[in-house]
Design a protein around this nucleic acid. Structure first.
Lengths: 179, 179
DNA sequence: AAGGTTAGTTAGGAATATCTAATAAAATTA
DNA sequence: TAATTTTATTAGATATTCCTAACTAACCTT
């Protein structure tokens, strides 16, 4: 008879991630700190801790400090890893400002499947490794955006010679609505 | 005295998007179809319709067909647009298979801010427009992945000459954990 | 038009994730 | 140690989103 674990909700993942991170900073994790980090009130934390304790993700006795179980730590670390990957993608590739990127990563980290996340990592590696791309290439992206998506800048510095119509067609394919 | 509209939840956005899409296919939108599309039971749809009617996103009288209000249509169209953008990014840039990408887009479309989404669009345009990138360049990404992220393939075809250590360093910066 | 089928609604309930107010335990300080 | 402050818990309420079971309205079919 198998024991089927109910899947964690996004909210539960947030708590585990928060506890994991607080644990890196301090040796004691307290209800108050979790509440502050997640912008919720303390009673909300207490009830979630009971819930996570029932599911065996935390060891918790009332009025005592909170500890992640092995399983809980695994989830917490994984959430942080995802957050990290997404944050890097948003800041270093898409050049989104840190604060916004951090917020978006918080939300996205719950929705992406492991395989999609891996694809993001692969893509970042590819950009770094490919001699036609790299950081220097990404700096052209900034020029491009800052000039109002005018291809001029990129074309000037580019190494290939592509007719304007071809470029317009390419853009069409990827970025215009379907219907 | 201002009237402050409560923000829509992800779930509400899903209903509006579903109704919008059903409307493109057929002239009548019925409870049954919404239920099927969203994988919920009919009573769930009925109660959500009442909710959305109170918020003035749909016109709805019991036993009659459902219509989006101007505002509701705006939201529905926007959700679909987001879905589209994300689907294209996932399939055409990250090369994720259609089914997976479509699922992920469904979840992501609720979390990304308009400005981040725009950045995704800009990035796709940039890839198309930049002579060093484009579809041909993306095909190298596939080679790269399929060879287990071995830079060999890309290097062979690349136009620059970069020492291996530099490449390893670059990868380090973007893809390794912070802590 | 009567009867059956399909579609839709109501009623009532459960899980999740919040909150406030009141209370209690723990920690600090005088 | 007694008093005060801080931290945490309980109790009870609300909003969302979903469900099942039972009922009803609308639509076909003969």
């Amino acid at each position: 008879m198998k024991k089927i674990k109910k899947p964690l909700t996004s909210s539960m993942e947030d708590y585990l991630e928060a506890i994991y991170e607080l644990n890196l900073e301090k040796s004691f994790v307290r209800v108050k700190d979790i509440a502050k980090k997640l912008n919720v009130k303390m009673p909300t934390v207490t009830s979630m801790l009971k819930n996570l304790r029932d599911r065996e993700y935390v060891n918790y006795e009332k009025y005592e400090f909170v500890e992640l179980t092995k399983e809980g730590e695994k989830v917490g670390r994984e959430m942080r890893r995802r957050h990290d990957v997404l944050l890097k993608f948003l800041t270093k590739i898409l050049k989104i400002d840190y604060k916004t990127a951090d917020d978006e990563a918080c939300k996205m980290e719950h929705t992406l499947s492991p395989s999609t996340l891996q694809r993001v990592i692969d893509f970042m590696e590819f950009i770094q490794v490919c001699p036609r791309a790299g950081m220097e290439w990404l700096s052209h992206f900034e020029d491009f955006r800052k000039s109002g998506n005018n291809p001029g800048k990129c074309l000037e510095r580019g190494s290939l010679d592509t007719p304007c119509q071809v470029i317009r067609d390419r853009v069409e394919i990827l970025t215009k609505a379907d219907n």
